[in-house]
């Protein structure tokens, strides 16, 4: 639990749209150095939009994204990567015809040529986290399984030497077992390398287990925020995210009221 580090990333009333479609409507959140923060939300809640706004893929209409005390919402993605914000996109988004190793090198694209030796060393380190990637180093990344591609996507982001890593639904399409394995490794990355993590997830069970602090996002708005230990015990969360049903009329009524969460 490290919620006492300084705040390195903060969103203040951020609003982002796709043309006329407002995807997030005034999102505020804080991320402390060294912590693991999760944002939970159903399909279309705006989780990916939050991450894309942070990494500069889309510019917000309103509000600010403050990183290490500096507003970054108008900067371009390459600059943001260089400041130490790396994005593991939803659906992996690997380069299918490049080899695994070349994919990793692209993760290090923003790093100066002078760091070549360091990059090689870090490639060895990520092979330590995910040994399968070493075995497949010279194969086209498109030939990896979904889980292996997720490992590659995480490793590729690590090669940018991030201070904070944004993970978009790392559990997507993975078996529960593989999901747990991947989460255990990202927790290790957080502990061993001090990389701060902002993880958006639909899989609340897993996210709440591993994260320190959580936000709940519903149609573009944050509706709840608490340490994960607290969130895990909340009735609403239990019911709608963890599938632990409260019986009786009250529960059903709440179910109807909150159905949008699913």
């Amino acid at each position: 639990m490290s919620l006492d580090g300084e705040i390195i990333l903060q969103l203040n009333n951020v609003e982002s749209s796709y043309g006329p479609v407002k995807a997030i409507r005034g999102v505020s959140l804080k991320v402390h150095q060294g912590s693991i923060v999760t944002v939970l939300g159903a399909n279309g809640a705006g989780k990916s939009t939050i991450l894309k706004t942070i990494s500069g893929i889309i510019d917000p209409q309103k509000g600010s994204v403050v990183y290490h005390g500096e507003p970054i919402q108008k900067k371009d993605p390459a600059w943001i990567v260089r400041q130490g914000i790396a994005h593991v996109p939803e659906g992996r988004e690997i380069f299918p015809l490049l080899t695994v190793r070349e994919n990793l090198l692209m993760g290090a694209y923003t790093r100066p040529l002078g760091e070549k030796a360091a990059v090689e060393q870090e490639i060895e380190q990520v092979y330590g986290y995910f040994p399968i990637l070493r075995e497949r180093a010279n194969q086209p990344a498109g030939q990896l399984s979904g889980g292996q591609q997720q490992m590659l996507a995480i490793s590729r982001a690590l090669l940018a030497k991030p201070t904070i890593m944004l993970l978009d639904e790392p559990s997507l399409g993975l078996s529960p077992k593989l999901t747990r394995e991947i989460f255990e490794i990202i927790v290790r990355i957080n502990r061993e390398r001090g990389v701060t993590l902002l993880v958006v997830e639909q899989n609340a069970r897993v996210a709440l287990k591993y994260a320190d602090f959580g936000y709940v996002l519903e149609v573009g708005r944050i509706v709840m925020e608490d340490p994960c230990a607290v969130l895990r015990e909340k009735e609403d969360i239990k019911e709608f995210y963890l599938g632990i049903k409260e019986s009786g009329v009250r529960g059903t009524r709440r179910w109807k009221k909150k159905k949008t969460w699913r």
Binding site: R82, P89, E93, I94, L98, E102, M106
Partner: peptide
């Protein structure tokens, strides 16, 4: 070369190239 691999990367997945900070 880094630039050559980046050219291929960009042509294979432009969005991912943006995420990597490739110009």
């Amino acid at each position: 070369t880094k630039i050559g691999i980046a050219m291929q990367a960009t042509s294979q997945n432009q969005l991912a190239a943006f995420y990597m900070g490739i110009p």
